[in-house]
Simulated scan of single mutants.
Amino acid sequence: MVGIITYGAYIPQFRIKADEIAKVWGANGTEISNGLGVFEKSVPDMDEDSLTIAVNAARNALARRDVNPADIGAIYVGSESHPYAVKPTSVTVGEAIGATPVMTAADYEFACKAGTAGIQTCMGLVKSGMIKYGVAIGSDVAQGAPSDALEYTAAAGGAAFVIGNDDPIAEINDTCSYSTDTPDFWRREGQAYPRHGGRFSGEPAYFKHVQGAAHLMMDRMGTKPADYDYAIFHQPNAKFPRNVAAMLGFKPEQIKQGLCAPRLGNTYSGAVPVGLSSVLDVAKPGDRIFVTSYGSGSGSDAFDITVTDAILTKIDRKAAPSVETMLNDKIYLDYAQYAKHKGKIVMQK
């Protein structure tokens, strides 16, 4: 019975409205917001990056449940924006939460599904008996070039999950993946901002892979959309997850709780983990959760999850801020302040 032992998310306080970005570039902010379904996005503080977000998410997870850091045998951090090209984020997270020396630690990168890939790895290590607990984190300070369409959605945030088989609060019944070489989005070494393949972003990238993994998961489990209480899909905007949910047969109320993009933006590797955290904030024993991530390049990871009685007895959900609390705790920036926070403009010394 491998599953989620505890969880925690972290979202920076700062926000910028899509209207503010559009105003600078002479675009129609209302039209862009309505088209993407994203009205504002999170922005990191001056001293925040994907590493500090990962540390805060992991600390929030451990605040909810008394897990001995010495029992954590693996730490995997998935991100498109690791602060170092050569130096792991994962070991710094381990040091910060008191889990070093750790048996295995690594940084993952598979575009926006690197966090869910970490969950799969931790599941395998726990099931094999090699470790007691593993920590999987999806964390990003997403990049978007000035005036590019990505600038309206590229956000900051992440979530951490402790995976184990000791009274999990949510059992992961099964997982599967669907991947192909589909170059819809990329960033070469040394480039500050990613590029995207335009028409490839929807079909045959996002929709093909999300549907491929989702159908495979339901075929394996013998389930249909109506069997699930909640569903979370990767959310580069609010339009794509709503459309793919409808294509698969899920209803709007099933994705509502986990759809954070309208108020958060796209946190890349953190998008599905934050959405799942939002669902776990309110889930009840017996609730069934369907999850499908997506990473450009391209691939999707799907999960079938059942919430257990332990969510009421083994963790204190109030010991760390909920996703809803963090979404409502915000400070708005103008474009100049946002550009400074994001390093788009720097002071010459």
Rank of each mutant, 00 (worst) to 15 (best):
I4D: 05
Y7A: 13
Y10D: 08
K17Y: 06
D19E: 15
E20I: 01
I21F: 14
A22V: 09
W25Q: 11
G26Y: 06
A27T: 12
G35T: 06
L36A: 05
F39P: 01
F39Y: 10
S42P: 00
S42I: 00
M46I: 00
S50P: 07
I53C: 02
D71N: 07
A74Q: 07
A74F: 11
Y76H: 11
Y76L: 13
S79N: 08
T92A: 10
T92F: 08
P101K: 13
V102S: 09
V102Y: 04
E109I: 04
E109K: 08
F110L: 05
A114Q: 03
G115H: 00
G115K: 01
T121W: 04
T121G: 01
C122L: 07
C122N: 10
G124Q: 04
G124F: 02
G138T: 02
S139M: 10
D140P: 04
G144Y: 06
A145F: 02
A145V: 01
L150Y: 13
T153E: 05
T153K: 11
G158I: 06
G164P: 02
I169V: 15
D181E: 15
D181M: 13
D181W: 14
W186H: 02
R188H: 10
G197F: 10
R199D: 15
A205K: 01
F207D: 06
K208S: 13
H209S: 08
A214W: 01
H215V: 01
M218V: 07
D219K: 07
R220C: 11
A231Q: 07
A231L: 03
I232V: 15
F233Y: 06
H234S: 13
K239I: 11
K239F: 13
F240A: 15
P241S: 09
P241V: 01
A246D: 12
A246E: 14
G249W: 04
L259V: 02
C260N: 13
L264D: 09
G265F: 01
P273E: 14
G275R: 04
D281T: 02
V282Q: 15
P285C: 12
D287I: 00
V291F: 04
V291Q: 09
T292E: 11
S293K: 04
S293P: 09
G299V: 00
G299T: 00
S300G: 06
D301E: 14
F303H: 10
F303S: 08
I311R: 03
I311N: 06
K318D: 15
P321A: 13
V323H: 02
E324I: 12
E324Y: 10
N328P: 10
Y332A: 12
Y332F: 10
A336C: 04
Y338A: 12
G343L: 11
K349E: 08
